[in-house]
């Protein structure tokens, strides 16, 4: 009896002691809390408050009433969205464009990194890398200006076609060629930039491995296959997970600046659809929020799914 009372007392004291110790840690870090405060406020205001705003997807939004007081509408927004042929269109286009990007665009930076790594002329290599990386820093507004400049009726491409006796071609106005343009122009903008992460992975390889392989008589292709590729595989796996997680984002900036009503049929993605439905066609904010929510949820599921597949099926290191 006596024993257990003292034990309880001791426990209570050690609990207090732990609290006190924790509090001391907090006080010790007071300057760090001051430093992190603006960052925390930023994410609360511009990321978490809007997350709360997704309840609009379940409401009939009325501007005068605001988010809080607008009435619930019993999933009517979801029924509207899922029954809308324009939504289905945008949904299918987003998947088509994103899978196209995975197949066509994804391998290019890996290839580029391998080629740059194999290149022997140091100064030229740096110049090439500078050129390849540069378009990443230019906005789609500027790039689409350049693209329309080159592809329009009076542009260089048509001048070349005419010079060689071909018909003029309006790439920007045809569904099929527009998709090709989407992929090509994104490779132009991002391939060099995306290759940096692979180059960083290659730079981490111990050069002695290559020397040893050289002595063993392995040629360049064999060295690439046995030493460079296994290192790139893991980086590629992580980039692939992120790319799959981003499948529901078809690339708003690019498509919004390049597309035109003539190619809406194939080029309209969920993001451009949300924008137009909210700000051009004014279908209602509840409706647009619902499309955004569906997009976000499916994107998250894809991310987790891809991470699972990469870890369990391909036995690579995943994202988490």
């Amino acid at each position: 009896m006596q024993n257990s009372v003292s034990q309880i007392k001791y426990r209570r004291q050690s609990g207090l002691e732990a609290n006190r110790r924790k509090w001391r840690e907090v006080v010790k870090h007071k300057y760090f809390y001051m430093m992190v405060l603006p960052t925390v406020l930023f994410f609360l205001i511009f990321a978490y408050v809007p997350m709360y705003g997704v309840i609009l997807a379940f409401k009939d939004f009325n501007y005068m009433l605001g988010i809080m007081d607008s009435p619930w509408n019993n999933f009517q927004n979801f029924r509207d969205v899922l029954g809308d042929p324009n939504f289905k269109h945008a949904f299918n286009n987003t998947l088509l464009i994103s899978f196209g990007r995975l197949i066509i665009e994804f391998p290019i930076p890996i290839l580029l990194a391998i080629l740059l790594n194999e290149m022997r002329f140091g100064r030229l290599k740096r110049i090439f890398q500078t050129v390849f990386t540069f378009p990443h820093f230019i906005s789609w507004v500027v790039l689409s200006g350049i693209i329309t400049n080159i592809l329009n009726d009076q542009g260089v491409l048509n001048q070349i076609l005419v010079l060689f006796g071909f018909e003029k071609n309006s790439i920007l106005l045809h569904n099929g060629s527009f998709l090709g343009l989407i992929f090509t122009s994104n490779i132009w903008k991002e391939a060099g930039w995306s290759s940096i992460i692979y180059l960083a992975a290659i730079a981490g390889i111990n050069p002695e491995l290559y020397e040893a392989a050289d002595i063993d008589g392995a040629n360049r292709y064999q060295q690439m296959k046995a030493i460079t590729w296994p290192v790139l595989r893991n980086t590629a796996a992580i980039m692939l997970i992120l790319a799959v997680g981003g499948i529901m984002n078809g690339g708003f900036d690019q498509i919004f600046n390049l597309y035109n009503p003539a190619v809406y049929e194939r080029a309209d993605i969920l993001d451009t659809f949300v924008y137009r439905s909210a700000f051009v066609d004014a279908t209602g904010f509840g409706y647009s929020t619902t499309v955004g929510l569906l997009k976000s949820v499916i994107g998250c599921l894809l991310l987790f799914g891809a991470n699972f597949v990469v870890k369990r099926v391909f036995k690579e290191e995943g994202l988490y």
């Binding site: 924790k22 840690e25 907090v26 870090h29 760090f32 809390y33 992190v36 960052t39 925390v40 994410f43 511009f46 990321a47 978490y48 408050v49 809007p50 997350m51 709360y52 705003g53 997704v54 609009l56 988010i67 997680g245 993001d271 949300v274 924008y275 909210a278 904010f285 647009s288 929020t289 499309v291 955004g292 929510l293 997009k295 976000s296 994107g299 998250c300 991310l303």
Partner: peptide, 26 residues
């Protein structure tokens, strides 16, 4: 720093899930 992990996870979550355009607009 106590609470650092919670803050950090909270930030990472925003990279994968967002409220979307309209709630941000409002």
């Amino acid at each position: 720093m106590p609470g650092r992990n919670i803050i950090f996870i909270g930030i990472i979550l925003t990279m994968f899930f967002s409220g979307g355009l309209i709630p941000l607009y409002l």
